[in-house]
Amino acid sequence: MIESTPIIDFHAHAGNWTNRAFPDNPEVYIKQMDITGVDRTCMNCIWFGDANWANNLVHNRFVSAYPDRFIGVAFVTPHYPEECIYELDRSFDELNFKFLKLYPDYYGQSSDADGYKPIFEWANQKEIPIMCHGRYGTDAPGTTQLKRYEKFTKDYPKIKWVIAHAGGGTELDSVKTAKELPNIWLETCGSGNPLNAVSYAVNHGLSDRLLFGSDMPIMDYRNQIAKVITADISRDDKKKILGLNAIKLLNL
Protein backbone atom coordinates (compact mmCIF):
# COMPACT_ATOMS: atom_id res chain seq x y z
CA MET A 1 0.00 0.00 0.00
CA ILE A 2 1.43 3.35 -1.07
CA GLU A 3 1.28 5.98 1.67
CA SER A 4 1.99 9.69 1.85
CA THR A 5 4.54 10.87 4.38
CA PRO A 6 7.16 13.62 4.33
CA ILE A 7 10.60 12.29 3.42
CA ILE A 8 13.72 14.34 4.11
CA ASP A 9 17.20 13.12 3.20
CA PHE A 10 19.46 14.55 5.88
CA HIS A 11 22.83 13.67 4.34
CA ALA A 12 23.87 14.25 0.74
CA HIS A 13 26.86 15.82 -0.94
CA ALA A 14 27.32 18.34 -3.70
CA GLY A 15 30.43 18.58 -5.82
CA ASN A 16 31.73 16.14 -8.39
CA TRP A 17 33.99 13.30 -7.30
CA THR A 18 34.39 11.74 -10.70
CA ASN A 19 37.59 9.93 -9.75
CA ARG A 20 35.21 7.69 -7.85
CA ALA A 21 32.43 7.92 -10.45
CA PHE A 22 30.28 10.14 -8.23
CA PRO A 23 28.68 12.88 -10.31
CA ASP A 24 26.61 15.62 -8.70
CA ASN A 25 24.14 16.37 -11.49
CA PRO A 26 21.03 17.74 -9.72
CA GLU A 27 18.78 16.11 -12.28
CA VAL A 28 20.11 12.70 -11.27
CA TYR A 29 19.30 13.48 -7.66
CA ILE A 30 15.79 14.65 -8.50
CA LYS A 31 15.12 11.61 -10.65
CA GLN A 32 16.07 9.32 -7.78
CA MET A 33 14.20 11.45 -5.27
CA ASP A 34 11.09 11.07 -7.36
CA ILE A 35 11.57 7.31 -7.63
CA THR A 36 12.02 6.91 -3.90
CA GLY A 37 9.54 9.55 -2.75
CA VAL A 38 12.13 11.84 -1.19
CA ASP A 39 10.67 15.32 -0.90
CA ARG A 40 13.77 17.30 -0.02
CA THR A 41 17.47 16.59 0.32
CA CYS A 42 19.88 18.38 2.65
CA MET A 43 22.97 19.20 0.59
CA ASN A 44 26.45 19.84 1.93
CA CYS A 45 29.72 20.24 0.09
CA ILE A 46 32.81 19.13 2.00
CA TRP A 47 35.10 18.41 -0.95
CA PHE A 48 36.77 21.77 -1.34
CA GLY A 49 39.47 23.45 0.69
CA ASP A 50 37.62 26.70 0.08
CA ALA A 51 34.40 26.65 2.11
CA ASN A 52 33.12 29.78 0.39
CA TRP A 53 33.37 28.04 -2.96
CA ALA A 54 31.79 24.90 -1.57
CA ASN A 55 28.82 26.65 0.01
CA ASN A 56 28.24 28.70 -3.14
CA LEU A 57 28.19 25.48 -5.13
CA VAL A 58 25.51 24.05 -2.86
CA HIS A 59 23.49 27.22 -3.12
CA ASN A 60 23.83 27.88 -6.84
CA ARG A 61 23.75 24.39 -8.26
CA PHE A 62 21.10 22.94 -5.98
CA VAL A 63 19.25 25.15 -3.52
CA SER A 64 18.51 28.23 -5.59
CA ALA A 65 17.99 26.19 -8.76
CA TYR A 66 15.52 23.81 -7.09
CA PRO A 67 14.35 25.50 -3.90
CA ASP A 68 11.49 23.08 -3.33
CA ARG A 69 13.77 20.03 -3.44
CA PHE A 70 17.05 20.96 -1.75
CA ILE A 71 18.04 22.38 1.63
CA GLY A 72 21.42 24.02 2.10
CA VAL A 73 23.89 22.74 4.67
CA ALA A 74 26.95 24.83 5.51
CA PHE A 75 30.56 23.66 5.68
CA VAL A 76 33.66 25.35 7.08
CA THR A 77 37.23 24.17 7.42
CA PRO A 78 39.39 24.87 10.46
CA HIS A 79 42.42 24.87 8.16
CA TYR A 80 41.39 28.47 7.55
CA PRO A 81 40.15 29.64 10.95
CA GLU A 82 40.28 33.28 9.90
CA GLU A 83 37.50 32.59 7.38
CA CYS A 84 35.20 30.40 9.49
CA ILE A 85 33.00 32.88 11.32
CA TYR A 86 32.49 35.09 8.30
CA GLU A 87 31.54 32.06 6.23
CA LEU A 88 29.21 30.76 8.91
CA ASP A 89 27.43 34.10 9.15
CA ARG A 90 27.16 34.29 5.38
CA SER A 91 25.90 30.72 5.03
CA PHE A 92 23.10 31.09 7.52
CA ASP A 93 22.18 34.78 7.22
CA GLU A 94 22.50 35.18 3.46
CA LEU A 95 22.22 31.69 1.99
CA ASN A 96 19.64 30.56 4.56
CA PHE A 97 21.33 27.22 5.19
CA LYS A 98 19.77 25.06 7.91
CA PHE A 99 22.59 23.28 9.70
CA LEU A 100 26.34 22.77 9.66
CA LYS A 101 28.29 19.74 8.45
CA LEU A 102 31.85 19.28 9.63
CA TYR A 103 34.31 16.72 8.33
CA PRO A 104 37.24 16.42 10.72
CA ASP A 105 38.90 13.65 8.70
CA TYR A 106 40.03 16.34 6.26
CA TYR A 107 41.38 18.40 9.11
CA GLY A 108 43.52 15.51 10.22
CA GLN A 109 42.28 15.93 13.76
CA SER A 110 39.17 14.69 15.48
CA SER A 111 36.26 16.96 16.29
CA ASP A 112 37.48 17.65 19.81
CA ALA A 113 40.61 19.41 18.52
CA ASP A 114 41.01 23.03 19.54
CA GLY A 115 40.55 24.25 15.97
CA TYR A 116 36.84 23.58 16.24
CA LYS A 117 36.22 25.62 19.38
CA PRO A 118 35.36 28.93 17.65
CA ILE A 119 33.02 27.08 15.32
CA PHE A 120 31.26 25.31 18.16
CA GLU A 121 31.01 28.51 20.17
CA TRP A 122 29.40 30.25 17.21
CA ALA A 123 26.97 27.37 16.64
CA ASN A 124 26.09 27.25 20.32
CA GLN A 125 25.31 30.95 20.37
CA LYS A 126 23.18 30.68 17.23
CA GLU A 127 21.67 27.29 18.22
CA ILE A 128 22.68 25.70 14.93
CA PRO A 129 22.61 21.87 14.64
CA ILE A 130 25.88 20.22 13.63
CA MET A 131 26.31 16.93 11.80
CA CYS A 132 29.66 15.24 12.21
CA HIS A 133 31.14 11.77 12.27
CA GLY A 134 31.41 10.10 15.64
CA ARG A 135 34.85 8.55 15.43
CA TYR A 136 38.10 9.23 13.62
CA GLY A 137 41.29 7.42 12.76
CA THR A 138 43.14 9.98 14.81
CA ASP A 139 41.26 9.16 18.01
CA ALA A 140 43.40 8.38 21.03
CA PRO A 141 43.07 4.85 22.45
CA GLY A 142 40.09 4.59 24.75
CA THR A 143 38.17 7.36 23.05
CA THR A 144 34.44 6.74 22.96
CA GLN A 145 31.67 8.68 21.37
CA LEU A 146 29.97 8.93 24.72
CA LYS A 147 32.97 10.63 26.33
CA ARG A 148 33.37 12.94 23.35
CA TYR A 149 29.78 14.02 23.19
CA GLU A 150 29.35 14.24 26.96
CA LYS A 151 31.88 17.04 26.83
CA PHE A 152 30.37 18.60 23.72
CA THR A 153 26.84 18.65 25.12
CA LYS A 154 28.10 20.07 28.41
CA ASP A 155 30.27 22.75 26.83
CA TYR A 156 27.82 23.62 24.05
CA PRO A 157 24.36 22.78 25.38
CA LYS A 158 22.42 24.64 22.70
CA ILE A 159 23.83 22.62 19.82
CA LYS A 160 21.85 19.64 18.57
CA TRP A 161 24.42 17.10 17.45
CA VAL A 162 23.81 14.66 14.62
CA ILE A 163 26.23 11.74 14.42
CA ALA A 164 26.59 10.91 10.74
CA HIS A 165 26.37 7.25 9.72
CA ALA A 166 25.72 6.20 13.29
CA GLY A 167 22.06 5.28 13.13
CA GLY A 168 22.84 2.76 10.45
CA GLY A 169 25.02 0.72 12.71
CA THR A 170 24.46 -1.55 15.62
CA GLU A 171 27.45 -0.11 17.42
CA LEU A 172 26.68 0.07 21.06
CA ASP A 173 28.76 3.18 21.28
CA SER A 174 26.57 5.41 19.11
CA VAL A 175 23.28 4.08 20.44
CA LYS A 176 24.56 4.30 24.00
CA THR A 177 25.69 7.87 23.37
CA ALA A 178 22.28 8.91 22.07
CA LYS A 179 20.49 7.12 24.92
CA GLU A 180 22.58 8.93 27.50
CA LEU A 181 22.54 12.35 25.90
CA PRO A 182 19.26 13.93 24.79
CA ASN A 183 20.92 16.36 22.39
CA ILE A 184 22.21 13.58 20.13
CA TRP A 185 20.56 12.44 16.88
CA LEU A 186 21.75 9.53 14.73
CA GLU A 187 21.77 9.55 10.94
CA THR A 188 21.38 6.30 9.02
CA CYS A 189 23.43 6.25 5.81
CA GLY A 190 26.45 4.08 5.14
CA SER A 191 27.97 1.66 2.67
CA GLY A 192 27.88 -1.05 5.28
CA ASN A 193 24.47 -2.21 6.29
CA PRO A 194 24.46 -4.10 9.57
CA LEU A 195 21.55 -6.40 10.21
CA ASN A 196 18.81 -4.90 12.41
CA ALA A 197 20.67 -1.59 12.71
CA VAL A 198 17.63 0.65 12.54
CA SER A 199 15.41 -1.57 14.66
CA TYR A 200 18.21 -1.87 17.22
CA ALA A 201 18.25 1.89 17.71
CA VAL A 202 14.45 2.08 17.72
CA ASN A 203 14.23 -0.68 20.29
CA HIS A 204 16.54 1.38 22.50
CA GLY A 205 14.04 4.23 22.51
CA LEU A 206 15.60 6.39 19.81
CA SER A 207 12.82 6.51 17.22
CA ASP A 208 12.41 10.26 17.74
CA ARG A 209 16.11 10.90 17.12
CA LEU A 210 16.90 8.86 14.02
CA LEU A 211 17.27 10.64 10.70
CA PHE A 212 17.22 9.07 7.26
CA GLY A 213 20.25 9.97 5.13
CA SER A 214 21.45 8.79 1.73
CA ASP A 215 25.08 9.94 1.30
CA MET A 216 24.24 10.76 -2.32
CA PRO A 217 25.98 10.76 -4.76
CA ILE A 218 28.32 8.22 -3.19
CA MET A 219 25.42 5.89 -2.54
CA ASP A 220 22.06 5.33 -4.13
CA TYR A 221 18.90 6.70 -2.52
CA ARG A 222 17.14 3.40 -3.06
CA ASN A 223 19.54 1.28 -1.03
CA GLN A 224 19.65 3.79 1.78
CA ILE A 225 15.94 4.47 2.13
CA ALA A 226 15.31 0.75 2.00
CA LYS A 227 17.15 0.36 5.31
CA VAL A 228 14.32 2.27 6.95
CA ILE A 229 11.42 1.07 4.82
CA THR A 230 12.25 -2.61 5.23
CA ALA A 231 13.29 -2.45 8.89
CA ASP A 232 11.31 -4.50 11.36
CA ILE A 233 9.75 -1.48 13.08
CA SER A 234 6.32 0.15 13.16
CA ARG A 235 4.98 2.26 10.32
CA ASP A 236 4.83 5.26 12.62
CA ASP A 237 8.49 4.90 13.49
CA LYS A 238 9.38 4.58 9.81
CA LYS A 239 7.59 7.87 9.13
CA LYS A 240 9.45 9.59 11.94
CA ILE A 241 12.83 8.44 10.66
CA LEU A 242 12.04 9.16 7.02
CA GLY A 243 11.14 12.78 7.60
CA LEU A 244 9.11 13.83 10.61
CA ASN A 245 12.14 13.92 12.89
CA ALA A 246 14.12 16.06 10.45
CA ILE A 247 11.23 18.49 10.07
CA LYS A 248 11.11 18.88 13.84
CA LEU A 249 14.87 19.21 14.25
CA LEU A 250 15.27 21.82 11.53
CA ASN A 251 11.95 23.62 12.11
CA LEU A 252 11.01 23.09 8.46
Binding site: I35, T36, G192, N193, P194, L195, N196, D220, R222, N223, Q224, I225, A226, K227, I229, T230, A231
Partner: peptide, 18 residues
Amino acid sequence: SRFPDSPMSPQLYNLHHN
Protein backbone atom coordinates in the same frame (compact mmCIF):
# COMPACT_ATOMS: atom_id res chain seq x y z
CA SER B 1 22.45 -9.96 0.88
CA ARG B 2 25.55 -10.70 2.95
CA PHE B 3 23.22 -11.99 5.65
CA PRO B 4 23.54 -12.17 8.66
CA ASP B 5 25.94 -9.23 8.68
CA SER B 6 23.46 -7.30 6.57
CA PRO B 7 19.70 -7.49 6.03
CA MET B 8 18.14 -9.19 3.04
CA SER B 9 15.67 -6.51 1.97
CA PRO B 10 17.44 -3.28 1.00
CA GLN B 11 19.03 -4.46 -2.24
CA LEU B 12 15.76 -6.16 -3.17
CA TYR B 13 14.00 -2.85 -2.66
CA ASN B 14 16.55 -1.16 -4.88
CA LEU B 15 16.13 -3.78 -7.62
CA HIS B 16 12.37 -3.33 -7.53
CA HIS B 17 12.75 0.42 -8.03
CA ASN B 18 15.11 0.36 -11.01
